[in-house]
Design a protein around this nucleic acid. Structure first.
Lengths: 173, 173
DNA sequence: AAAAATTACGTGACAAGTCATATATTTTTT
DNA sequence: AAAAAATATATGACTTGTCACGTAATTTTT
């Protein structure tokens, strides 16, 4: 590679580094990678600890904490779409982790309940997931964590706004 | 529905609310919903503004700012897997947004470059995306935003740690 | 009571990510 | 220079999420 080429590429590398760095301040731009890393870490721990997927873990946790729940309620707690659970639950039943039965009082609803095996799988994964939360929390002071959560609250509020509310405003500069 | 049932269900609703509230303090648990909402908002704006997907927008933006880039470099900037781009780019070429050519100096690499149409699509979407970033930033002071980003830095650092580093430690209580 | 509206769930189709593995090309080692 | 290692890309398979739409059951309105 010629001398001039070297200089050229290095200028490009600088521009790449600069762009990467700038995007670090852009919350929208960095959220995907942060979420992906968090998901990956969770999947890794759950797989090793109890052979569970994230959806399975969340569901077992909710059922262990709250007791029997409908699909709608599980989706509400997990802030996710009911279809995700609608698809995951039959598999979980097949694995013996949960029982599902039609609600006697409201025939539209399905009541999901932990089995003994489901409780055991939860008990097996729970200490590992707890250690993970503790290790994460140890990186922050309690005040910082509360502030972090409040920033996410504010960010969520912004995201729940109709887009026309800000798209039609004049640009700041 | 009988009186006793009403009381029972209301207790359950309280437990659901309590669980939902508690999970608000759990960064791991709320990240999926926040990310999903952010993605949805971006998709909505991009679709309306220029008929672009998120991956397409990011790629056009990077190319517009930095100039021609290889797939590897695009993935590096976007902090994502190269396979995502490997799949998206042929579509973008078909739509006339980018050109792709084999690097003469390194036959493994593909150089991606903006076309005129790609630049136009970028110019069309950019003001909307800018307004979005401004509207988001308006919810925070500059100090808060910097702090928010630094919290994400710290969270990312935690996530990049090998899981054994904390799984094998003793639990805090 | 019948009609209309709402709600719960299932399912198809898609987007945005991941990983693993194969292949071609370069680069490094011997 | 040949062999070995590393790198860039393509591709298949999977997970987690979305929305839209259909159907059955319940609730509300008329």
């Amino acid at each position: 590679m010629a001398q001039s080429d070297l200089r050229e590429v290095s200028g490009k590398d600088d521009r790449i580094r600069a762009r990467r760095l700038r995007e670090t301040q852009n919350i929208f731009a960095r959220l995907p990678a942060t979420y992906a890393a968090s998901r990956k870490q969770g999947q890794q721990i759950l797989k090793r600890a109890a052979g569970l997927s994230i959806v399975e873990w969340r569901t077992l946790w909710d059922l262990a904490e709250v007791g029997p729940l409908t699909i709608r309620e599980l989706a509400l707690i997990q802030r996710t779409d009911h279809s995700l659970l609608s698809r995951a639950l039959p598999d979980m039943r097949r694995k013996g982790l949960v029982e599902m039965r039609r609600d006697e009082e409201d025939g539209r609803q399905t009541i999901v309940e932990l089995t003994t095996a489901g409780r055991e799988a939860f008990d097996q994964a729970a200490p590992f997931m707890k250690r993970r939360r503790e290790a994460m929390r140890a990186q922050f002071t309690p005040d910082e964590l509360a502030l972090f959560a409040s920033f996410l609250d504010r960010f969520d509020d912004f995201l729940s706004q109709p887009i026309d509310d800000f798209l039609n405003e004049e640009s700041a500069e």
